[in-house]
């Protein structure tokens, strides 16, 4: 018991330090019946960094995210999230891990029967004992951050596709998680709207120090997030500008092909890769 407590404290201390590993995949495998979805996948997400998982449809990208948040269990391998082995936790134990994880699903997955306010504040209204006034204030603050404050009373069906994705981001960030998981957050959006969603991801990462895993097959968005950074000006305004070389290196790319990692490196390494599959993917 004492030993366990010491281990937990040590893990917490390590996680507080810069450069700490917040998500670790160690030789993870998963198959649905005869179809192997992930084969021996290993990677690490460093605190405050971005991991971009690329790959064609059905390559296992979304499955990897669902394993991180505990929606799916790996057949083999170890998965660490914020110092906890999610592959060994029960559904009840996973609830604690999920308190620090925000996930944006494909198409947003907003609750149809709830307003934008209720969607964004869902976790705070339903799963915490915070005073209503505090929750309302946080919801308004988050919607202001993503520029949708005037839509607070609308239903999801009244929003455009891009607005829905941004509300989904607001819902995931309302409870201030330190890790965000984006599952095809920009797929199906026009380039201008996709850029507004990308900007929200960048702002969260750089201004709120949120670690991110971005799953996408939209190369344009993947490179945009990796090669830009958010800066707050003296007057409080936030601008998204070209990232410094050092900042660019904080975004790492993984390419999955049939559940197997075939590339791992930064944006430059990806662009210059000679692998025929990656070349065809980039072209």
């Amino acid at each position: 018991m004492v030993q366990g407590s010491i281990e937990t404290q040590t893990a917490r201390q390590i996680l507080r330090e810069p450069g700490a590993p917040v998500v670790v995949f160690d030789h993870v495998q998963l198959a649905f019946d005869d179809k192997v979805v992930l084969r021996d996948v290993s990677f690490t997400l460093i605190k405050g960094h971005t991991k971009v998982i690329l790959g064609a449809s059905g390559s296992g990208k979304s499955t990897a995210l669902k394993i991180v948040v505990g929606l799916l269990k790996a057949d083999a391998g170890i998965v660490w999230v914020n110092g906890q082995r999610v592959d060994q936790l029960t559904e009840k134990g996973l609830m604690d891990v999920r308190d620090d994880l925000g996930m944006i699903f494909q198409e947003g997955a907003l609750f149809d029967s709830l307003t934008v306010r209720e969607n964004v504040g869902y976790k705070l209204y339903e799963e915490t004992a915070l005073p209503l006034a505090d929750i309302d204030r946080r919801v308004e603050e988050v919607l202001g951050f993503i520029g949708l404050a005037e839509h607070i009373g609308k239903m999801p069906s009244e929003l455009s596709g891009g607005q829905r994705r941004r509300v989904a981001i607001a819902r995931a960030m309302a409870f201030k998680p330190s890790i965000m998981l984006y599952d095809e957050a920009t797929t199906g959006l026009d380039p201008i709207t996709a850029t507004t969603v990308d900007d929200e991801m960048i702002k969260l990462r750089d201004l709120e120090n949120v670690s991110s895993i971005i799953v996408t097959h939209q190369l344009r968005d993947a490179f945009y997030v990796a090669e830009h950074m958010a800066m707050r000006q003296g007057n409080g305004e936030v601008h998204v500008v070209r990232a410094t070389r050092e900042k660019e290196r904080e975004a790492e790319f993984i390419m999955l092909q049939d559940g197997l990692i075939i590339f791992e490196g930064d944006a430059d390494a990806l662009r210059t890769s000679a692998d025929p599959y990656i070349r065809s993917f980039l072209s």
């Binding site: 929606l71 999920r98 308190d99 996930m103 699903f105 609750f111 149809d112 339903e126 799963e127």
Partner: peptide, 22 residues
């Protein structure tokens, strides 16, 4: 069923809610 196919059930779980209880 609609909530399942639109990932709303997964979203509930990811937000820390047990869909059986809710």
């Amino acid at each position: 069923g609609s909530m399942v196919v639109t990932d709303q059930i997964n979203a509930l779980r990811a937000l820390g809610t047990d869909p059986v209880r809710k």
